[in-house]
Design a protein around this nucleic acid. Structure first.
Lengths: 199, 199
DNA sequence: GAATATACATAGTCAGTCCTATGTTTCTCG
DNA sequence: CGAGAAACATAGGACTGACTATGTATATTC
C-alpha cells in the first residue's frame, strides 16, 4: 500500500505538503486541540506514523504549519494594496482580505483566530505570535504613513485589531458588517487617529 | 462526606453556584473543550456526579453558565457610562471594562472570546450568542446617539468588534495598546462613522 | 419515627487521543 | 544486484474524558 513515485525525496516532499494542508484545513475548521493527529493524517491520505516521522509530535506539526505560512498572507495583502490608489480602495482591500480572501485559501482568518486562542494559553506559541503581530503592526504603520498626512505611529494594533474584531462580528452575523460599515470604521481609525475630539 | 447545611434547597443552591463559578473560572482560563467535568467539579469541591445531576451534560453546564451570566456585564457597563460626562470619558469607560474590568470578575473577556470560538463551531450556541450580540450592538447604537450629533446606525458591530480586537492585541502585547491608543481608535470609529474621507 | 425522596459520591464503561515500537515496502548506492 | 536506508504503515500501551449505574448519607413527609 505504497505510492509509487519517482524518488523518495519527491514522495517525502509531497507527504509533508499534504499533511500541512490537511492540518491547516482541520485546525481552521475544528480547532487545534479538537483535531487529532489521526484525523489530520487521514485527511492527507496517510497515517499517524507519517506525522510522527515528519514532525515528531503535534506541537511540531503546528510549528511547521506556522513556518510554512508566515508571509503567505501578508505578501498577498501587500500585492493588493499596491494596486489600490485611494485610501478607501486600500482600506477595502484590507478588509476584503480578511472577510472574503480571494486567494484560494478562504480559511486563513479562522486559522488566525484559532492560533490566537491557542497562543494565549501556550507561552512558546505566544512568543512566536508576538513577533508575527509586531511585524504586521509595523507594516500597517509604515504603509499608512503614505496614505494620510499625519503621524500614524501606534495605529497598527488598532487597525489589525479592528479587522479581526469586525471579522468576529461578521462570523456572528454577516449582514451586520457590510463593506460600508467596515470601511467607515477603518477610515475612522486611520484618519481620526490623532485628531482631537470634536464634541 | 456530606455538607451539613440547613435545608436541601440551600445545599443544592450553593452547589449550583459553586459549580457555575468553577466552570466560569476554568472555561476562561483553559478553554471550554480543554476543561473536564471532573476538573470543574473538583474546583467546586464536588464530584462529577453533582454536575450531571444539576446540568445533565457538559453542554447543559455551558448553557446554564450563559444564562446566569447574561447581563451581569452589560449592566455594569451601563452603570459606569452613566457616571461619565464627556465622550472620551465614556469611551474610556467602555475600554476599561474590557481591558481591566473593575468588578471583581476580571475574566469575563477571556470567557467571551472562548465562548465566541466555541459558538462559531456549535450552531445552537451560536444562535444564543447572536441574540446576545445583537442586543449589545443595539445598546451601543442607542447610547452613542446621545454622544454625537450624527447618525450612529450601524456602528454597533464596529465598536464592539474594535473593543474585542483591541483586547486581542493587548493579550499579545499589553504595551502596544495603551489607553491613548484605544481611545484614539474608539473615537475614530464613533466620530468618523459617516464622515466622508478627507483625503 | 419509619418510609421515601433528595443530593450528591463512587465505580466503572466505552471511546478517543498521543505517542512508541516495530514491521513492511520502496528506493538508493556501491 | 544486494545491503542498507528511507518513508511510511500497523499494532498497541497508557492515559484521559464524557457519561452511566448504582450506592449512601442527609433531609422531608406522613
Amino acid at each position: 500500500m505504497f505510492l509509487v513515485v519517482a524518488t523518495q525525496t519527491e514522495r517525502r516532499t509531497e507527504t509533508r505538503a499534504r499533511l500541512l494542508e490537511a492540518a491547516a484545513e482541520l485546525f481552521a475548521e475544528r480547532g487545534i486541540e479538537a483535531s487529532s493527529i489521526d484525523a489530520v493524517a487521514a485527511l492527507a491520505g496517510r497515517t499517524s506514523g507519517a506525522v510522527y516521522d515528519h514532525f515528531g509530535n503535534k506541537d511540531g506539526l503546528l510549528r511547521a504549519l506556522l513556518e510554512s505560512w508566515v508571509d503567505d498572507v501578508s505578501s498577498a495583502v501587500v500585492a493588493e494594496l499596491d494596486a489600490a490608489t485611494t485610501l478607501d480602495e486600500r482600506l477595502l482591500a484590507l478588509w476584503h482580505n480578511v472577510a472574503a480572501p480571494p486567494s484560494g485559501d478562504g480559511r486563513w482568518i479562522a486559522l488566525e483566530h484559532e492560533l490566537w486562542a491557542y497562543a494565549v494559553r501556550h507561552d512558546d506559541t505566544r512568543a512566536y505570535l508576538e513577533r508575527r503581530y509586531r511585524a504586521a503592526w509595523a507594516g500597517v504603520e509604515v504603509a499608512a504613513a503614505d496614505w494620510v498626512d499625519h503621524d500614524t505611529a501606534g495605529i497598527g494594533p488598532s487597525v489589525i485589531g479592528l479587522l479581526l474584531g469586525l471579522e468576529m462580528m461578521r462570523r456572528i452575523d454577516p449582514s451586520a458588517v457590510t463593506d460600508d460599515v467596515a470601511l467607515d470604521a477603518l477610515r475612522g481609525v486611520v484618519l481620526g487617529a490623532r485628531s482631537p475630539a470634536r464634541i
